[in-house]
C-alpha cells in the first residue's frame, strides 16, 4: 500500500514540477501574433496591389492563414503559389484568372508634360513611390514602384503608363537548359536521318 501511495505521490510531484515548467515556458517564450502569417507575408510579393481582393499583402496573408485559396496573387504568380503550397503543405493550384493574370514586371511612368498635378495618383500609391505636389508635375520613383496599377485608374488625364521593365545586361539571367525530353529524340544518328527523309 505504501508503495502505491509513494508512486502516486512521486507522479503527482513530477506532474506539478513539469506543469510549473510548462507554465513558465508558456509565459517566457510566448509568441505574439500568428507566426504563420508572417511567413506567408514574407512569400507574397508586397506589391500591395489589392488584386487578391484584400487591402494589401498582409491582409491576404492573414486570409490565407484563415483558409483562403493561395492562388489569388497575380503579381506573385506561380512561383509564389508554389512557395505558399510548400509552406502550408497544400497542393499548388494554378493562378485564379479572376484576380488577374501574371504579367511581366512593370512600373508606372507618368507622361510628365500631360500631368496636371492633381495628386490623385500620389494618394493612390500604396508605397509612396510617386513624388509631386498639387499643381506640380508628378513623377514615379521607378525603383520604388511595385507596378501595382493602382495609380492608373485615378488619373483624370490618363497620363500614367504601365511600362514593362526590360531586361538589361545587369538584370539578365541565364535560361534554364531545355532538359532531356526536348533533345533526346535525335540521339541515334539513323533516327535523325529517318526524320529528315520524312
Amino acid at each position: 500500500m505504501f508503495t502505491v501511495l509513494l508512486a502516486i505521490g512521486i507522479l503527482v510531484l513530477l506532474s506539478l514540477i513539469f506543469g510549473a515548467i510548462l507554465g513558465y515556458a508558456n509565459v517566457r517564450f510566448h509568441v505574439e501574433g500568428d507566426p504563420i502569417v508572417d511567413q506567408i507575408d514574407a512569400l507574397l510579393p508586397q506589391t500591395q496591389c489589392g488584386q487578391c481582393g484584400h487591402p494589401g499583402c498582409r491582409p491576404y496573408a492573414e486570409a490565407i492563414a484563415n483558409g483562403e485559396a493561395i492562388n489569388h496573387c497575380p503579381p506573385g504568380g506561380q512561383v509564389t503559389i508554389q512557395a505558399l503550397a510548400d509552406l502550408l503543405d497544400v497542393e499548388a493550384v494554378p493562378l485564379d484568372g479572376d484576380h488577374g493574370t501574371e504579367n511581366a514586371k512593370r512600373v508606372a511612368v507618368i507622361r510628365e508634360d500631360e500631368c496636371i498635378g492633381c495628386t490623385k495618383c500620389i494618394q493612390a500609391c500604396p508605397v509612396d513611390a510617386i513624388l509631386g505636389a498639387a499643381k506640380q508635375m508628378h513623377t514615379v520613383i521607378a525603383d520604388e514602384c511595385t507596378g501595382c496599377d493602382l495609380c492608373v485608374e485615378p488619373c483624370p488625364v490618363d497620363c500614367i503608363d504601365m511600362v514593362e521593365v526590360g531586361v538589361t545586361a545587369k538584370t539578365w539571367s541565364w535560361d534554364k537548359p531545355q532538359g532531356i525530353a526536348a533533345t533526346s529524340l535525335n540521339i541515334i544518328a539513323t533516327d535523325r536521318q529517318a526524320e529528315v527523309t520524312h
Partner: peptide, 22 residues
C-alpha cells in the same frame, strides 16, 4: 539556379522595401 536565387534575393529586398514603405 544562381541567377534565379539572385533574382529572388533582389525581389525580396525590393518587396521588403515595398512592405516597409507600405
Amino acid at each position: 539556379s544562381k541567377s534565379s536565387i539572385r533574382e529572388a534575393r533582389e525581389a525580396n529586398v525590393k518587396s521588403d522595401l515595398a512592405k516597409q514603405r507600405f
